[in-house]
Amino acid sequence: MLTAINLACVRGDRHLFANLGFTLEPGGRLHVTGENGSGKTSLLRILCGLSPPESGQIHWQGEPIRGLGDEYRKAVLYLGHHNAIKEELTALENLRTTAALAGIAVADEEGVALLGRVGLAGREDLPVRFLSQGQKRRVALSRLLWSPAPLWILDEPFVALDTAAVSWLAEIVGAHLDRGGMAVLTSHQEVNIASGIAQFLRITP
């Protein structure tokens, strides 16, 4: 269970939001909406612990995340604006090193199978710089397939994806919620995620 209490965020001398709070139960998803520059990404970074909030607290399973350390980092998967992949490495090498960073060993065959599931079959050994934007995003999204983290924090996950991939991703997120996972996501597109209890949070100054 993820609880945010009275969060406030200040960037420079701009107050992005204050008194923001929500509770996310297993199987729940939170859609964060708001205009460009309203602080959606800032909120998501605060939620994964990358930056501290100006005030307020975030609790994971009833404990403040500041004190949880690696226990919380193990529970979170964060997908930001950047794909966190290396142009010079192949899709398979990227997948394996990203998994290694999360402390998970993926063997070659497993990696190839996972990349097949994100629609990159036959392109595993191509340096990522030869792939299109959408395909790069798919390499980044392959993390959703091996990650054991119960809390997914996804910043604009649907950007650059074609319609088939959008519905594929919606299914993956739905399956995650069905298993009792949680998701926080931002998106400017309408997406149909069938499962889970949806909450909507609109950030207004």
């Binding site: 490495l89 090498e93 090193t97 290694a100 402390g103 497993e110 397939l145 054991p148 119960p150 298993r179």
Partner: peptide, 26 residues
């Protein structure tokens, strides 16, 4: 809960030294 959520089920965990070496190798 994390184990139950591991979709592949078979993926092994790396030790801390394994992560260090993976970063160096990359």
């Amino acid at each position: 809960q994390a184990d139950a959520l591991n979709q592949a089920g078979t993926l092994a965990e790396l030790g801390t030294l394994g992560v260090l070496l993976a970063v160096a190798r990359r």
